[in-house]
């Protein structure tokens, strides 16, 4: 069965989407990712979509859902590497990915995740 690999990088999970996803594959990714967040106790998820040639309403909704589900599981999601043509098309389509953080590339995404998680662990432990 087709699968999108999920890599573990310390406290974070990295997903690089390199195929033109059909709808079931997107849903499967959503399932597996939420499972892995719990299993690995991950604090952040990076989704690299630099190889994606389009983001339509279905893929957009899947990304937003993943971010929302991850948040419930106490993990932050950053979508990185969206191509300019894809971004322009999404805006025209009316998609804005509310509640999803974005970054230019994996490196910047990592920085964002690190700073977010840093803030968390700096907080005083509950009394």
């Amino acid at each position: 069965m087709e699968q999108i690999p999920i890599l573990k990088l310390g406290k974070f999970l990295l997903v690089t989407i390199q195929v033109d996803m059909h709808d079931q594959l997107a849903l499967r990714l959503q399932d597996e990712l939420t499972n892995r967040i719990v299993k690995e106790n991950a604090k952040g998820v990076l989704i690299d979509i630099s190889a994606l040639e389009i983001v339509d309403s279905f893929i957009g909704r899947t990304l937003a859902n993943i971010a929302a589900m991850a948040r419930i599981l106490d993990a932050e999601t950053v979508v990185v590497g969206m191509q300019p043509a894809v971004a322009i098309t999404m805006v025209e389509l009316g998609l804005s990915l509310p509640g999803v953080r974005t970054a230019l590339n994996v490196e910047r995404g990592m920085e964002i995740l690190s700073s977010l998680v840093q803030v968390d662990s700096d907080a005083p432990p509950p009394a």
Partner: peptide
């Protein structure tokens, strides 16, 4: 950009 629009 236009390719992306029509494909989407």
């Amino acid at each position: 950009v236009d390719q992306t629009k029509i494909v989407t």
